[in-house]
Design a protein around this nucleic acid. Structure first.
Lengths: 252, 252
DNA sequence: AAGTGGTCTAGACCACGGC
DNA sequence: CCGTGGTCTAGACCACTTC
């Protein structure tokens, strides 16, 4: 603790703890000294110690458990999602991309869907190439693996394309909505995915059961018909500590 | 303020401010009431008000400026990075992917490179398909646009492929390292990119000049020769509030 | 000089988990 | 019951920006 360095005390404490964690002095899953012990160790007040720990929590390095202690967060298991999950071959045998992934990875998937219809706002209309206000079919899904929420997905299609099809039902049948579109003569030509990241809203953090300091990955996928007409857009939200996305393409 | 709801006071204050921001009562760029005003408005102590504001900062919703006030963070300008930046056609006229992007977007790019050689660790060896300990050439780059740091990139190649080439020099010449590899008979067959996100380390936050509550996007790209041999791996780190990544592919 | 956010203290009480 | 983290208070002083 250097009180004259100009560096705030809580940052010095955080830096010291961070170093010890990275160095392995506190291993993954290990408990840090209690806040009151740290008060004695560093010679600062408890709020200052808490500021330091709050910093490490925001970085996603430690988890605090009330009544128990503060623990070094162990590395999480990462799933890779590849674009091959959208192949027709995969659809032939499964209920959709998410179920296909689940089958491959050996966990028990479940998914709850809410269907609604609403007028397209500016953004949706732009991406789907329709007039704002045009009615769209919205499939709002919460996907779970072994009971744990792992993904949110909001899919929107021009209602014109879904009227009278099972895409407006909860269960879209084998191969999912994409398979139904193709059966209706809308063969998919190409996909575009737009990937970004941000901190979650409090609602997202609680539905996705996110730990502190964990961002979400946002993916907006648009499926186009072979003539270039947008068929569907899908806004997906994934916990960044459990997913990576893999894309692969030939040079040129 | 409901003191008997069980919801902590600072979360109630944060929720109220968040609502007002989302509703547009405080517009982007607008100043929130000062902490001491909020103390009066909500009837809680200043540390409690600060806890509330700290929450909004961690979410990336507001910025605090010492001596001035707390401001609603305005939306940032987002650049899209598309895989087409890696095409041979783009290389033909430019110095590399980053410079190509810069030219297209109309900003002034600059980039500082440090070259070093080191033995491959476990991860690097696995991705490059070589034995751990094998010497690799490391090109450690900081990319800037109009003076602002916008990307970190650490590129690694088996030294065997770069010995005697300008890839071991600071300036790799027109088209960048990929062009030199192709000239040396290592035509690129395909690329794989692995995309994830996490909160930045303090070092990353300061070199990338990241605002609070802004994650980084991490991309690991591997370039393979046409026979499948890994030629290069590139670990990129991007500020999540300034970039989105776009991928596009044909169905099937 | 006045107002702002940044830091820090020395307490207090609470809710929760484990013994 | 005791120790843990979670919340909250009422101050204090500082560094900084603006006027």
């Amino acid at each position: 603790m250097d009180r004259s360095s100009g560096v705030p005390a809580f940052r010095q404490v955080a830096a010291d703890l961070r170093e010890r964690i990275v160095a392995g002095e506190y291993e993954p899953g290990a408990r840090l000294p209690s806040e009151r012990e740290l008060v004695d160790n560093y010679g600062v007040s408890r709020p200052t110690i808490r500021d330091a720990i709050d910093l490490l929590r925001a970085e996603g390095r430690v988890d605090a458990v009330r009544g128990v202690g503060v623990f070094v967060r162990p590395p999480t298991q990462i799933e890779r999602l590849a674009r091959s999950r959208l192949s027709r071959a995969a659809r032939a045998e499964n209920k959709g991309a998410f179920m296909a992934d689940a089958a491959a990875k050996g966990f028990t998937p479940s998914s709850s869907v809410k269907i609604r219809f609403e007028p397209a706002d500016e953004r949706v209309a732009g991406l789907l190439g329709i007039e704002p206000g045009t009615e769209v079919t919205v499939r709002d899904r919460v996907m779970r693996a072994n009971g744990l929420v792992v993904q949110l997905a909001v899919s929107r299609l021009p209602r014109e394309l879904t009227r009278g099809t099972v895409i407006e039902e909860v269960d879209t049948g084998p191969g999912g909505a994409y398979a139904r579109l193709e059966e209706a003569g809308h063969a998919i030509g190409h996909y575009v995915e737009d990937v970004g990241s941000r901190m979650p809203s409090p609602e997202e953090a609680s539905t996705l059961q996110l730990a502190e300091g964990v961002p979400v990955i946002t993916v907006t996928r648009i499926a186009y018909r072979q003539d270039g007409l947008p068929l569907e857009m899908n806004d997906m939200t994934l916990p960044a500590d459990r997913y990576r996305l893999t894309y692969e393409w030939a040079a040129e």
